[in-house]
Amino acid sequence: MKPTRQQFVTPRAGRSYRTASQRGAIDRGTATAMFGIVAVVLIGMFSFFYLQQVVHTASQGADVSQLEAQISSLKEQQKTIELDGARLRSLQTIQEQTGSMNLVPTDSVSYLAPTDGRVAVLTK
């Protein structure tokens, strides 16, 4: 039966049917695809970040090794200097070096006994 009143609704009949995706809406497939792409991108980004950290740490390990080698070398130098210092301060070296200074041994020592509480004091 034909409608008597004018309708403003486009009748379904005669009009081509469009799916939600055709009308621009996101359907399940698209969402899945998008999710997959995002997931891959995120995984890729995290992987990249992780690899970068690993490489960075590994390269820092090399730097640490270098610094440790430097520390070891400096410690060796320190030990050498300490040993040289010990030899210079050894009694044998002192005796040899003072031999040329023409020092004379003390033959007597006098001890001063302060009297009346008066005493001359030398301070540094």
Binding site: V54, T57, A58, A62
Partner: peptide
Amino acid sequence: RGGTGKIIGV
């Protein structure tokens, strides 16, 4: 050790 002979820290 890596190719350069250094210890690999990780």
